[in-house]
Amino acid sequence: MPSQLKRLLVLGVIIISLFLLLKHLATPVSFGQYGHYRGNSLNEIAALPVKYVGSKTCVKCHDSIVALKLEGLHSDIQCENCHGPAYLHIKTPKKDKLFRPDSREFCAKCHSFNKARPEKAVTQQDIKNHHPEKKCITCHNPHQP
């Protein structure tokens, strides 16, 4: 066997061994436990705090507003869809106030014209030209639009 081939074979073995070592060291311990992912990630994600509390919790204090909302077109929308997660608010309601969106842009997230959005499902409006000087909530009560 020529000397250059011998040297290459040694180098090849070293490179492959290094790769296998790196693969061994860098593969997470629980990888492949259930499938092609890190098994421990399931428990880690499950252990994260739950931040959305659900409308059933909101109704305990804000029953009149929830009742109003249930009569309107926004009845299917969860409170926290607009107001954000309430996990802090339910512990310290005075200190941690929820988000109260009032901008035109916020309403536009769902109600701006978009050809890709089914018109029957969501009312659509030309946000640029429909009373541009006013806030949407001046005329529309967001809980019963």
């Binding site: 901008s103 035109r104 842009e105 536009a108 014209f113 050809k115 890709a116 946000i127 640029k128």
Partner: peptide
Amino acid sequence: MNPQYDQLYQALTKVVGY
């Protein structure tokens, strides 16, 4: 208007059909 919406409106003008 929020630049994000300007972008969306601009993009939507370039959409043809459905």
